[in-house]
Nucleic acid binder design. Structure first.
Ligand code: FES
Ligand code: FES
Lengths: 143, 143
DNA sequence: TATATAATATGATAAAAATCATATTTAAGA
DNA sequence: TCTTAAATATGATTTTTATCATATTATATA
């Protein structure tokens, strides 16, 4: 439903949101360690995120990754969509042809309300907002 | 979070619940087609489910798979646990070391209520109950 | 402008999940 | 008891996901 790669990407974005700025870019190796993701792996993901405009980067000395205003306002869904593809979250929980209100599967019947709430939240919450919770000490980013 | 195999298993159980009985056992090939899962693959899953007492079977002529009273009262969580292992559903959505109320990650903060509701539902709903919705025409089991 | 530093592009390898294939065992019924 | 029909056990293959490795390109700064 939500891949490892997406989780790693979210962690990376949150780490950048709380630790970087345009004047304080962060290198791959300094991201990989604190979020506990293999360096070469997160490097590849970061490159993909740059291409999709979810994060910003600069090469050469003093280079690294950071988030600009635009990046900060991306939502969790934006990240998941880029990494996992669009419709993983909305697909049927029994992997039927399609998830359908008119012909709901038995799980749809009992779970779709909760699922919709989750999707709505992921759609609305920006990286910036989530990072704020960390800064306020209400949420944490260990390992 | 919830694997393909688990989904297939759930579909198989629901199919058996609505179509089989001890006097009307169903063969692999007659399960595979309607639930749209490769025959050899579902066969393997069914064998695993028999071993774990989630479904019943008999070999030889007139043999096949079916559900007894006990099987009918298994929950969706029971199936997922057997196929995917215990703690896939309760693990941290950012794959931190552990999901922890005291040191919640930013996603925990916004999503755990909905997730808990889903888990609770999966824990309570029996195959029998879900199958009933199908029989009543409130839920459907296409493909 | 030369050097060193950092991301980028590309692709190889490893591990896990999904799928396929088949010989063996059990049991019903002729 | 023989034949045949079914599950069972076992393992091979394929596909996807995760991971690792490195040559290339861009840029700050000495
Ligand atoms: S989740 Fe199965 S139809 Fe919606
Ligand atoms: S979901 Fe991350 S700590 Fe609970």
């Amino acid at each position: 439903m939500i891949s490892n790669s997406s989780k790693y990407a979210i962690k990376a974005l949150l780490y950048l949101a709380t630790h970087s700025s345009i004047d304080n870019k962060i290198m791959v190796k300094d991201i990989a360690k604190p979020i506990n993701v293999p360096k070469a792996y997160i490097a590849k993901l970061l490159q993909q995120l740059v291409r999709e405009n979810l994060i910003s980067s600069a090469r050469g000395p003093k280079g690294g990754f950071y988030l600009d205003e635009d990046n900060l306002n991306k939502t969790v869904i934006n990240i998941i969509s880029v990494i996992d593809g669009e419709d993983n979250l909305n697909s049927c929980m029994l992997s039927l042809n399609e998830c359908n209100e008119n012909k709901p599967c038995p799980l749809h019947y009992v779970l779709s309300a909760s699922r919709n709430k989750i999707i709505k939240t992921l759609n609305n919450k920006t990286i910036n907002e989530l990072a704020l919770e960390v800064k306020l000490g209400k949420a944490f980013l260990p390992l």
